[in-house]
Amino acid sequence: MALLCFQSLRMLRSGIRCMSQNAQLVSLTVNDKTGVATLSLQRPPVNSLNLELLTEISSALTEATDNNSRGLILTSTNDGVFSAGLDILEMYKPNLDRVKEFWTKLQETWIKLYQTAYPTVAVINGHSPAGGCLLALSCEHRIMVKNFTIGLNETRLGIVAPPWFIASMVNVIGQRQSERALTLGHMFTTEEAKNVGLIDEIVQNKAEGTTQAEAFIQKFAKIPFQARSLTKTWLRNKTVESLVKNREDDLNMFLQVVTQPNAQESLGHYIQSLKNKATK
């Protein structure tokens, strides 16, 4: 089970746990001509996934569904980081009620994104480790800007990605490539990611990526929506159902791991190492 996560040096240095309750951590816009929605992550400085950000992502996905969106582009307002993964401060010396809500919201958000009826494209305009990689893997098509990295690198922190993280990668690049990447905690360059099929296209910048994302979604314009969405559901149902049937066990396993003294010690050392780097 994973404790994934990264946190920005600036946020650790300032001691900020989360944004103001009034701050908008995502934006959802819709192209009136195409009906395609764009969901942009905008939690400074690195879109680390805390409870509040996950809640807003989940709500935005529901809104896109309720508005009968024809497709969704997931991206970041930060050209440099798509998402740095789960917020480590959610798991270090956690409040038990909050950390339960945090993990449950992560499960919910992944389920919603993974099984949307409309087509989804990740425009990855920055580094995308751990939980950031999971968001990208959950989309149907991935477009990545050059000179960044992506991967499920949990083992480098001495932790383990949960089964549904692993399944998300296996479904994209296969068992062998996933086994090697996950056990090594490998972060793929943009070119490496394209070579193994982790991403589908390489672009020079976010604007080009958005154009290509719109073009991908447009391919489905003449495909009956219900037939397309049911096909996607059946293809992905086994992976989703595995978590749905075991959500409580998954939560309990996470709580068991995250509250272990050695896990807390490891997280503490990791946070301190980031603080030390920030002061150099």
Rank of each mutant, 00 (worst) to 15 (best):
T77M: 04
E179T: 15
N195E: 12
R176M: 10
L106D: 09
A23V: 09
T65P: 08
A117C: 09
Y114I: 05
L61A: 04
S242C: 01
G268N: 02
K105T: 08
S14P: 09
T116A: 14
Q107P: 02
L3F: 09
G158I: 06
S138P: 10
W110R: 02
Q21G: 07
G185D: 00
A227G: 09
R236F: 01
K100Q: 13
A64E: 06
N252M: 10
V244T: 10
L106E: 03
I111E: 13
Y270V: 04
L41C: 01
E63L: 14
N246Y: 04
S266Y: 07
K232C: 02
K33S: 15
E248F: 08
I111M: 12
F254C: 00
H269T: 00
S242E: 06
L53W: 07
N252I: 04
L157Y: 12
R10S: 15
G209Q: 03
Q42I: 00
T109Q: 13
T190G: 03
M187S: 15
S83Q: 02
N262W: 11
Y118H: 13
L198F: 11
T155E: 13
E56M: 11
R98C: 12
S168I: 01
R98M: 09
N276Y: 05
A278D: 12
R43Q: 10
L39V: 04
V203P: 03
R156M: 11
S273Q: 14
F188S: 01
E179P: 07
P224H: 08
G71Q: 07
F165K: 03
P261A: 11
L89H: 02
L4E: 06
N237L: 10
P261Y: 04
F188M: 03
E63A: 11
W164C: 07
L25D: 04
I217V: 11
L61E: 01
T231W: 12
L72Q: 10
L135R: 03
Q204H: 09
R180K: 15
Y114K: 12
Q115A: 12
Q260D: 13
